[in-house]
Write a protein that binds this DNA or RNA. Structure first.
Ligand SMILES: [Zn+2]
Length: 629
DNA sequence: TGTGCCGGGCG
DNA sequence: CGCCCGGCACA
């Protein structure tokens, strides 16, 4: 115990866990919001767990499953407990039909993407209560915060925090949909049991929102005014046990943010997994989101005031990050297919082992103007607008037709002149994989891509030297997207769209919704190799300092407290090695010595104990190809 | 002290 | 090449 506890304690706040919901004896996903009491000889530690649906509850550590807490392996699962298992290489969500405690086998009802249900028996240790790994995207469901990733998985082995799974993604927004389905039950329970409803929605969303909101605010320098929370929820329900929200408007964000990490959040929901998802992601998502409101109280209703909506502006594009490739697709499926086909020379419909594809593309959000700057330029070029929701789903090809539709975003208030930039720098070689054709120069794959170069000199704060961003869009039609939305790209998946920003934004109507997504960074990002034609983007975020791990309580709002894993991800996402003084990189006496990137590599992520999960390069002690900085 | 990975070595 | 690992710069 001590050990555990200790572990948990440090950066436990923000850790994704599954907490026991006393009312029904099942575990629900959420995150540690704070620690109420320490563990003592006579009693176990108590934490405030904020469930994904918005509820907050005090839970004893022994009733928490997750990194630093109880392993799933020792947890009795009730009928209907939602769980995640790996099926055919991908994570799927299912519900427990029964758990034989004697042999610790669990009969799980799994619903395939195609909709059919079937049962499977798993050892308890192979069952996760939280969604893990990569799955988010691949899997069908969604939600993913990467935070989840780690989760429970550790049960079996302990610790690994999972990050291991590389998964990245977060995205709440998307999740929503999923939640709708699965969680629905969850929600219901909550409502009925406790009453809160609104919050639940926002639970999912909030993360993103927060993030976004935070960013927005920051950038705009607007202060968060009061409005938000309230509306958000709509009416606040009753008191709910928790505070319904945090004191600060954003506050809620903060917490959530944590999990999602910066913005990382939004992953998409499930989209990807099934090869064809009929609906567009976004659309469903939105809808799903709100849906069922069970009980009644929820605000609901259509207007959506509460919920966010994402639909409208959000748009996410997926850009291949393969060395010189600039392929962009509207769906992750499409991009993964592209990667498999083009870069891995594989059958496009067969996933690579370990979903390696995921490591080779990033998401770009195009939401409303967040990025405007960049966009602006683009806009100038094309003037297009982002497409709406539906588009997302189409594959690249289809994408092309994205047409510009209307420009929704822009007019809002643009943020200040800062620039958003991206991030992600290819930096050195990509080692292992040589791709056959990555086109380096501009066209990349060929299709009609537009290549963009953005160079910026910094207007102020951003970078010290300018950096250039080069983007190419493949789909011909797409140009707009970028323009319209900002694009945030992060490393591999970790980020996603956040579009929905928020309640606040919305409600105010005038608020800039998307405004800033990203940020600009105060510091300079470094340029890196540039010139050559490689693509590079550097991005600068505000660097969040890696927070010291110890924050427990919730400080103010935005600071994120993440679990280690999350933080990890987050970092990776941001990865700009901010700390590095640009100058450093060059000096070189011949030796290479590069400033070490902040990104955690396989070794750190998976740990020595899971060396088998490391990318090959890491195994060989070569430069990691999975977590490239 | 731990991490990332260059440079080499070996089969 | 694939696979390992000594060793070193960093953090
Ligand atoms: Zn690696």
């Amino acid at each position: 115990m001590f050990g555990n506890k200790r572990l948990a304690k440090r950066s436990i706040v923000g850790t994704r866990v599954c907490g026991l919901w006393p009312q029904d004896g099942r575990y629900y996903p959420g995150m540690i919001q704070s620690q109420v009491s320490e563990e003592s000889i006579t009693s176990s530690a108590v934490y405030v767990v904020r469930f994904d649906d918005g509820f907050t509850q005090h839970v004893k550590s022994r009733c928490i499953v997750g990194p630093g807490f109880q392993p799933v392996a020792t947890t009795p699962l009730k009928h209907k407990q939602k769980v995640f298992i790996t099926l055919n290489g991908r994570e799927v969500c299912g519900t427990v039909l029964c758990h034989d405690r004697d042999i610790d086998e669990v009969v799980i009802s799994v619903r395939t993407p195609s909709g059919e249900d079937f049962e499977t028996v798993r050892k308890l240790e192979d069952v996760r209560l939280l969604e893990s790994r990569k799955s988010a995207r691949l899997v069908d469901h969604p939600d993913t915060d990467y935070s989840k990733l780690a989760d429970v998985q550790l049960s079996a082995n302990n610790t690994p925090v999972a990050d291991a799974n590389k998964r990245r993604m977060p995205s709440h927004v998307i999740d929503v949909p999923m939640m709708a389905s699965l969680d629905k039950s969850e929600r219901n329970r909550r409502q009925r049991s406790t009453v809160e409803d609104n919050s639940d929605d926002f639970g999912d969303v909030e993360m993103m929102d927060e993030t976004i909101a935070a960013m927005v605010l920051t950038s705009l320098s607007v202060s968060p005014k009061s409005p938000p929370p309230v509306n958000y929820y709509g009416h606040t329900p009753q008191k709910e046990q928790l505070d319904n929200h945090y004191p600060y408007p954003d506050s809620h964000l903060s917490s959530s943010v944590a999990s999602s990490g910066f913005y990382s959040g939004p992953s998409e929901r499930d989209d990807h997994s099934p090869p064809l998802a009929p609906l567009s992601e976004s659309a469903p998502a939105c809808m799903g989101f709100k849906p069922p409101t069970p009980g009644g109280s929820d605000d609901d209703s259509s207007n959506g005031s509460g919920r966010l909506l994402i639909c409208e502006e959000e748009d996410t594009l997926y850009k291949c990050t393969w060395r010189g490739c600039k392929e962009i697709a509207n769906t992750s499926n499409a991009i993964e297919r592209h990667i498999r086909r083009v870069h891995f020379d594989r059958d496009s419909d067969i996933e690579l082992t370990d979903n390696e594809e995921e490591f080779h593309y990033t998401e770009i959000d195009v939401t409303a103007q967040s990025i405007n700057n960049i966009t602006r330029s683009f806009a100038a070029m094309n003037t297009s607008s982002p497409k709406e929701a539906p588009a997302t789903e189409q594959p690249a090809a289809a994408a092309s037709q994205a047409h510009t539709g209307k420009p929704k975003m822009d007019q809002l208030r643009p943020m200040p002149p800062k620039m958003p930039d991206y991030q992600h720098i290819p930096r050195r070689r990509h080692i292992s994989e040589g791709s056959p054709q990555a086109g380096i120069g501009g066209s990349g794959t060929g299709q009609g891509g537009v290549a963009f170069h953005h160079s910026h000199g910094q207007g102020g704060d951003t970078v010290g030297g300018g950096f250039t961003t080069e983007i190419a869009f493949v789909p011909k039609g797409m140009s707009s997207s970028l323009g319209s939305g900002g694009a945030g790209v992060f490393d591999h998946d970790y980020q996603r769209k956040f579009s929905k920003q928020g309640p606040q934004a919305q409600h105010a109507s005038s608020v800039p919704t998307s405004a800033s997504l990203f940020h600009e960074s105060p510091r300079a990002s470094l340029p890196i190799t540039i010139s050559q034609g490689q693509i590079q983007k550097s991005l600068s975020w505000q660097t969040h300092p890696p927070s010291p791990a110890g924050i427990m309580v919730s400080p103010p709002q935005r600071p994120n407290k993440l679990t280690p894993q999350e933080r990890l991800m987050q970092h990776q996402a941001q990865s700009p090695k901010s700390s590095v003084p640009p100058s450093a990189f060059k000096n070189a006496p011949g030796h290479h010595r590069r400033p070490r990137s902040e990104v955690r590599k396989c070794r750190k992520v998976y740990g020595m104990e899971h060396r088998d999960q490391w990318c090959t390069q890491c195994k060989w002690k070569k430069a990691c190809t999975r977590f490239v900085d």
